[in-house]
Design a protein around this nucleic acid. Structure first.
Lengths: 174, 174
DNA sequence: GGACATCTGCGACGGAGTCGCAAGAGGTTG
DNA sequence: CAACCTCTTGCGACTCCGTCGCAGATGTCC
């Protein structure tokens, strides 16, 4: 959308990617130290994620890249996302019904938060990162189960769609 | 698999569907009170779920029905599952990566439990039903978010696959 | 600047779930 | 118990998400 050169070499900051530059630089560095090649499509994926204000599906990423570096294939985006996940640069969250959204991992962009998904409007809400700490402890002790709270979104109904006051955006059930 | 007459009328219990008869009867009754028709495919879906020892995907249900009442279409199973969910007879759980599993709701068969999914071996582990009570309270208070803990499986690594002692069944990541 | 392993684009594929349609069957009424 | 009207079903096609194999392009190292 905001036309900008994604192939920026790491000097000469454009204007949209602004604050996310360190994140991009760090991600690229981690690619290198991980023995991976730094290619335009990969750089684009990182930059799109860094510039995103929300969590993106693979197709979201694909679409945004297309606006800036046309011709990058869906499969490449998926593969890149996977590579970046292996390196710990990117995290994905499974959201109830559809999607599976991606974002730069932890420290990179936002702080440490978890996700909750509204069954009614589909919105993904950020919730406190420590929300499940007690639960995690209990699961390890009682069942030996090691919880990874970031990996799936909690499910329910958000404040806006709350049962009490019926509200907006009715869409498919999750 | 265990060949048995699914079209049993509600008298003369076969031998496999044993203890689940009340559950089936209750489900059928709820179909009627809900103004829904009771058809062989619908009855079969309920009976398969009632007889299941584990949680089933739509295709699992489809396969088991086929062994007993051949010719029921995939689409019908999906629609029936949805209808039963609307009536509160059936609940589905989104499991991290693939699936989406179904089971008779609450009181019907098992007690009230939640689910956790092992990223490594794919197993679905039952966890205490009260596990997220505190979390639910906190979400409502702080964010107005109404959590439905049964609706998605928690994600992590089960005791068997626990990081400490590497173990079995390596499969795709979730 | 060259060699080589790695990436990419492409097209096809597979699983999960949904939809529209016409035919068939459930439930109700007389 | 027969007819009727509406709800369900089966079928086939389709979408969406994700993955794969292949051949050609390209990043990286020397």
């Amino acid at each position: 959308m905001t036309g900008d050169d994604v192939r920026v070499r790491s000097a000469a900051p454009p204007d949209v990617v602004r604050g996310a530059h360190d994140a991009v630089a760090r991600a690229v560095a981690r690619l290198r130290t991980g023995g991976q090649r730094v290619t335009p499509p990969r750089r684009a994926v990182v930059e799109v994620l860094a510039a995103a204000d929300e969590h993106l599906t693979a197709d979201d990423v694909s679409a945004r890249i297309d606006a800036v570096l046309p011709g990058v294939n869906r499969a490449t985006v998926y593969r890149t996302l996977e590579t970046l996940a292996d390196l710990g640069v990117v995290t994905h969250v499974h959201v109830g019904h559809g999607a599976t959204v991606h974002h730069l991992a932890g420290e990179a962009v936002g702080e440490d938060h978890l996700h909750a998904h509204c069954r009614r409007c589909g919105r993904v809400v950020d919730v406190p990162g420590d929300l499940l700490d007690a639960v995690r402890g209990r699961l390890v002790q009682e069942l030996g189960f090691h919880l990874e709270p970031q990996h799936v979104a909690l499910s329910g109904t958000c404040a806006v769609c709350s049962p009490s006051r019926a509200h907006r955006v009715p869409s498919g059930e999750t």
